[in-house]
């Protein structure tokens, strides 16, 4: 026997207007301490956003005032008159080249050492030494890394990496030298991000692969690395930010010459052996707060620097997403 359900509206009908609104969880019902913490969380988040927006907004406002195509496409010249001092082409190219070099060296090193540490990690003592070594590098100030790098690259064994004076003295300053030491700045970030990613992959996934008759290294290549690709990208993006923003290594190890000055020889190699500058050293050189007297150019260069960082981050993100789209 079917009992009719009386107090339920037919399916699809609008709910009765007399029905009270469903109760929602509202901060008004919370304890005051929870409300305070909730407000503080919102407040901190909004304040950070406001600070970031203020910096970007101010730099955009000042930068766009002075930025034009001529500034971007002309090379800087040494001149006392501002309208003859040229643009920022060389620093922009120097920034891009140095970043690509630094990340290009740091990414394989960081990923491989993280894979070794998490997937093999034997002997334990060596693994601990590697881990704390990388922590030490992460904690070293960039000026120390720069001077240390100069001391290394001025050794005659590293002469092919830079310019050698007629007396046989090795200059020790070049894109290669600066890029190598820059990689040390990005390495701990890439290493840390990859390690966290690998640790987050469950033991089940590894065992599933081993149980299919795959070796450890095959599991790393085919299963684990594709899964941690977003982590590697995050580490690389953070590392890029550090490299792009670093000045000490540029000044000490890249020479901070106004123009990119390739060495003679094979064109590409000569460029890498040569000196140059980046936007950070340019901003320092042009800003009245630093050594120069061209605030307009400093603002424009700083804005371009910001754009480059954003673009590089977007590019890394796109690369990371490209092949992990299938996964989920």
């Amino acid at each position: 026997m079917v009992t009719p359900v009386l107090d339920r509206p037919p399916a699809g009908a609008a709910p009765s207007p007399l029905r009270p609104k469903p109760k929602r969880d509202s901060p008004r019902d919370w304890r005051w301490s929870h409300r305070l913490a909730f407000a503080a969380a919102w407040g901190c988040g909004l304040a950070l956003c406001a600070v970031a927006a203020a910096i970007v907004g101010y730099m955009g406002y000042r930068g766009l005032q002075y930025l034009d195509l001529g500034l971007l496409t002309s090379r800087p010249e040494a001149s006392l008159k501002q309208d003859e001092a040229g643009g920022i082409l060389d620093p922009v190219l120097g920034t891009l080249l140095l970043t690509v070099l630094g990340i290009g060296i740091a990414t394989p090193l960081g990923v491989v050492s993280a894979v070794w540490l998490v997937e093999y990690g034997k002997p334990r003592a060596l693994a601990r030494a590697v881990e704390s070594g990388i922590e030490v590098v992460a904690g070293t100030p960039d000026i120390v890394i720069a001077i240390f790098g100069l001391a290394i690259f001025q050794q005659s064994i590293f002469a092919p990496l830079s310019f050698t004076a007629s007396g046989g003295g090795v200059f020790g300053r070049s894109f290669l030298a600066a890029g190598t030491m820059m990689s040390l700045i990005a390495l701990p970030l890439i290493f840390g991000a990859t390690r966290e990613g690998l640790l987050a992959v469950g033991a089940l996934t590894r065992e599933a692969s081993w149980a299919l008759g795959k070796t450890r290294i095959c599991t790393v290549r085919e299963v684990l690395l594709p899964q941690v690709r977003p982590n590697i990208a995050t580490g690389a993006a953070l590392g890029m930010g550090r490299i792009v923003g670093d000045t000490a290594i540029v000044v000490v190890l890249l020479g901070a010459t106004l123009q990119i000055e390739p060495q003679d020889g094979i064109p590409g190699i000569g460029l890498l052996r040569g000196t140059g500058s980046t936007l950070t050293s340019y901003v320092y050189g042009a800003s009245p707060a630093g050594e120069g007297n061209a605030p307009q150019k400093a603002y424009a260069a700083a804005f371009v620097l910001l754009l480059i960082v954003l673009l590089l981050n977007a590019a890394v993100d796109a690369i990371a997403r490209r092949s992990s789209r299938k996964a989920s």
């Binding site: 469950g202 089940l204 996934t205 065992e207 599933a208 692969s209 149980a211 299919l212 299963v223 594709p226 899964q227 992990s324 299938k326 996964a327 989920s328």
Partner: peptide
């Protein structure tokens, strides 16, 4: 071959 307690397909197609 082995099948585990938790379904553990790889995050692939």
């Amino acid at each position: 071959a082995m099948v585990f307690q938790q379904p553990n397909p790889f995050p692939m197609s």
